[in-house]
Design a protein around this nucleic acid. Sequence first.
RNA 1: GGCCCCAUCGUCUAGCGGUUAGGACAUCGGCCUCUCACGCCGGUAACGCGAGUUCGAUUCUCGCUGGGGUCACCA
Length: 481
Amino acid sequence: MVLGRAMKPRLRFAPSPSGYLHIGGARTALFNWLWAKSQGGVFVLRVEDTDQERSSIESVRAILDAFVWLGMDWDEGPEVGGPHGPYFQSERKAIYRELVEGLISKGHAYRCYCTKEELDRAREELKQRNPKAQFVYPGTCRNRTDQPDLPHVVRFKSPRDGVTEFVDKVFGPISTPNAAQQDFVLVRTDGYPLYNLAATIDDHLMDITLVARARDHIGNTPQQLLIYRALGWDPPEFAHLPMMLSPKGEKLSKRHTSVSVQDYRDRGYPAAAVLNYIVRFGWSSGDQEIFSRDELVRLFSWDRVNKSDGKFDDKKFADVAFEHLKRAELTPLEEYAKNVQPFLAERGLTAPGPRTLAAAIPGIRERARTYRDAAADLDFYFREPPELDVKARDKLLNAEGAARLVELAETLAGREGWNATDLEAAVREWSEARGLAVKDVAQPARVALTGRSASPPLFEVMVVLGKERSLARLRRAPSLV
RNA sequence: GGCCCCAUCGUCUAGCGGUUAGGACAUCGGCCUCUCACGCCGGUAACGCGAGUUCGAUUCUCGCUGGGGUCACCA
């Protein structure tokens, strides 16, 4: 027990509900979640909806859904509640108001009556005179007589000298001169707190022990530290994460790739693969590339997090997803079947027999790179007749070949065993007896059985299809030509 | 521009003073084969530059260059 503070780490992710869950946000949340899980700590979700203009309840829903899909559960927050609520900042205005009054009365903050228009004008004028100069709030209202009834914002009275420093869990010591700080706004004219104020107060009141967020927040940290000090509170620890950038090194936006977690689900990627890919941005564990969710929890640690930004790579992402789909230990059969179902439904294949589905999946596992692809690969098993790829037919199946398939069907009909080994032996024997190579029979048969030129191994297909349907499709061959 | 941060193959990374600088993706050959895949074997490919420190720097220090972030009544 150190200093009597809570020992269990309490981590949080605080999205602002102004859209979907961004893939970068998911990554930030993941690091927090992993640490909370691995330490037996608590992961809280807090909705930062102080900007009424941009926040929406639909967006909260979308973000929560994304968390559920990713399998990142939260211990406190919307829907589950908890002892530190409310978890929507819009419902915490009274808390902020009271604390801000204290700040003002102690001289750490003051009311400012300069209007946005005045400030914008001053900013503009300065820019005219000296395009390179930076506008700093001149402190006009610092010592002005207080008139609480007039419209105003509340500004923090930043120290003019000294430095603010902290030890980042990832970047190490970071020190910023206070002179670089201006009297930033704490509360807007409409009474709503701004990010730095609300986040600071909530992190403290919610007993957050470690704030892990993307590197673009490093510059906010000194301001928040100043607020902690003014409020007389001990700050939590901070960990900043390197950024995940576009392939070109720009800020990741939808111009470059899917940025909404929802998109990845819709494109048919496994959730665990999304997690696997994004965690590898800035974190590694030796040479290992593929991790299950549980492994991640077990292996994650801050000393394996590095500092340099990374660029998103679709190809690598696709490969990670593919690995998850290929390995049965990562995606068990039942899970695969369940997840591919919606994509089959999209193709109008609503009720594939569960037995057949389970039997068919092993054959397409090493072929399908997404659940969406898997549904396409599976299609011919469940569609009667299978969709015919005309090009494949033109290339591989002619009248002569089709006639042979009918003969083959009769031979096969008389056989006992209907398993891949026996079927292959039978077809081999049958082909050789006619002076044909196996592929001269197999390729036309593939077209008849699957409607396409590419499929899982032919004899596996026949087993999954079953004797009756296989024979029927072979006998139907002449009608395709 | 001020402040802050970063720097190993094209990309994600391993490396924590002495290595033929390793892995993965991508890419290029080849093998396997009833198709497509999977798999396997092999190739190309990196320490940004310059000073120090040291017997010895990818590794430590400084400078430069390059890149990124941030400077709102957004979060």
